[in-house]
Design a binder for these strands. Structure first.
Lengths: 208, 208
DNA sequence: TTCTGTTTTTGACCAATGTCAAAACGTAGT
DNA sequence: ACTACGTTTTGACATTGGTCAAAAACAGAA
């Protein structure tokens, strides 16, 4: 098994071999593409459980992100620093795949941080091991391709929202599309996520 | 090279078998992944040339977009209508892959239009035929997967720009990253693309 | 050239949102 | 219940960018 403590550089990673069960992950991917039992086995062999607690970091800016993660339960945020302010640009919850994408793909240092909003359980696979799977199993390559399609469409929607909608519209969108965010994330982070100031968010909420 | 007869109607696709040469496409994809000669042959067999002239539409909102296109030369824009205004949200130029992505993937009617900014030559492949290729050739599946990664990263950058940068910063970004847009696209479209009004764009340009 | 239609710029004004500072609120710990 | 801390709201003001209308610049056709 790979020693991922090195790449993540946190003393607080906890491995719980006795709890290893990737059923939720397998069940989730089954909802968008069926991979062979053999490929599932292979995935299983490469996945490592990662447990972190609130406020810890999964990825730190400046470091190369060498893993992709499946979030079994918990909540994360991705943020980067822009003239002294933290800009939160995404959240992740149960059943999301998570990584610092640009860094993971290009091997460049990450420009963003990924931090735990709640204590979380994740499954990690390294880039090298993922590449093994992609080489060996056409159906895993397809699974990834289809996953990318979903994530691309999600990002496209957020882009249009960001560029062309008012603060009020963005908030209403959030309310109707992803209300769970409001229940689990401090408003300061939500404001940043919506691309507005916390004060404006507060006022928008006030007049509904 | 290409005629522009009066017989071209706004929705007409013109096929010119005698001009079929997908060398540029093959050369382009070679820059990010090598596919076998056999797979190249298969792609070749499925591609159809499409020639359209300025202001014609490649995709119209409300219709399902069933093809993905490679733009050999020319320029396109994607736009949708929002309370009476046309919002241009992307441009495509030589060597870009183009489709109404959400529609193509989900088989829903397109919400956007794709219109020609210049007379263009494209290569089209239908969703069914692409699926044949994806089933038959693991290396084409990989090619697509890698292409998605590039496009995802590109969109991520645009998203961050859109959500968190000022009009001036966005324009300066455009100048340094994609100056060719300014040389080939009317400023009205560019303003929309940057998410600002044409007047603001004009003023921003004025004070540089 | 002149005419005509389109694109771009300019000006006056206004609405939306940001900034800074202070107050109010909530919650955990004692 | 009280304190201390972090989060959220409120108020006053500044700034950005949008809107509308008109003027100027530009391009193509006659």
């Amino acid at each position: 098994m790979v020693q991922s403590t090195k790449s993540i550089q946190h003393s607080s990673l906890i491995y719980l071999p006795e709890l290893r069960t990737i059923q939720q992950l397998l069940k989730h991917i089954e909802t968008f593409y069926h991979v062979s039992a053999e490929a599932q086995q292979a995935m299983h062999a490469f996945l490592e459980q990662v447990v972190l607690s609130k406020n810890e970091y999964l990825v730190k800016e400046g470091k190369i992100c060498r893993h992709i993660y499946f979030l079994e339960h918990g909540a994360l945020r991705g943020f980067y620093n822009l003239d002294g302010k933290e800009i939160t640009h995404w959240f992740a919850f149960e059943k999301d795949f998570v990584t610092s994408f640009h860094s993971f793909i290009t091997h460049q240092p990450a420009v963003e941080n990924i931090q735990l909003i709640e204590g979380s359980v994740l499954w990690a696979i390294s880039k090298e091991n993922l590449n093994c799977l992609l080489n060996e199993y056409h159906d895993i390559e397809r699974l990834v391709r289809i996953a990318y399609e979903k994530y691309y469409i999600r990002l496209e929607e957020r882009f249009v929202n960001a560029q062309f909608k008012s603060a009020l519209e963005r908030y209403q969108n959030l309310l109707s599309q992803t209300p769970h965010i409001l229940e689990r994330v401090p408003l300061g982070y939500v404001a940043s996520y919506l691309g507005i100031s916390q004060e404006t968010l507060s006022r928008v909420r006030g007049r509904l």
